[in-house]
Design a binder for these strands. Structure first.
Lengths: 116, 116
DNA sequence: CTTAGTACTTGGCCATACATAGTACCTTTT
DNA sequence: AAAAGGTACTATGTATGGCCAAGTACTAAG
């Protein structure tokens, strides 16, 4: 019951949302995503990202194409599918609802009234 | 990859935060918590709540005492410990950070600029 | 050819939420 | 008093997703 573990648990399902959102904004490959997530202070490692991308693809939410790189092996550039956009909207609603629900709980004080 | 499953995943770790917060506000027993969580639209079932309470107790974050009930078997009334208050503050910081990070990701549009 | 760097893959581990079934105690009914 | 029903808590097994760690494959530089 340490805080590191809780951080891991809390991000479950949210990574999926964030990554699908990043892909929805334009073609990116894994390192682009890692960079953006890191800059938002969401620490993600390859072993998390790649399996997630595979899941998204198998579910038909994203697609990819190989693109040659001038320095190194070719890269998988991901794009979102129509089905993916629909799912992203559902994820968005789910996230908003979760934030709203949590806010409702933690905004109550000892007397059960809302306060600041 | 259905939305119901994602809802389950998204709440992982957050239940712990919500429940510890509820307990921090005063003595409650399981049914009180279920009622409050349900009213905040966080659907939780006994099979989730009781093991979580046991985990919290084993970690020394909460304590409980048996209280006789006028109708039915005695109840475990939970209270937060000092150690629990410390952990709650950490959870709070973790949650705030996660919300902030997610907000940063999803507030970006196609051009990579912030917009509404 | 060897070394280093980049990109992607895979297998196993762990913690949490949940479904389900079960135990124990109390009150009410007959 | 025995049976029936409700309340509170417990225990077991499953599925999922994040993560570690090791591994593969391709390219460029020495």
């Amino acid at each position: 019951m340490n805080i590191e573990n809780t951080q891991v648990q809390m991000r479950k399902g949210i990574l999926e949302y964030c990554i699908l959102h990043i892909i929805s904004r334009g073609e990116v490959y894994a390192s682009d995503m890692l960079e953006e997530l890191t800059s938002a202070k969401i620490m993600v490692v390859e072993g998390t990202l790649y399996p997630l991308l595979t899941r998204l693809r198998k579910a038909g939410l994203v697609d990819y194409k190989w693109v040659e790189s001038s320095s190194g092996p070719p890269r998988k550039y991901y794009t979102i599918t129509e089905s993916g956009r629909g799912f992203l909207m559902e994820l968005s609603a789910t996230w908003d609802e979760l934030v709203s629900s949590t806010q409702q709980i933690i905004s109550l004080n000892q007397n059960g009234n809302t306060s600041s």
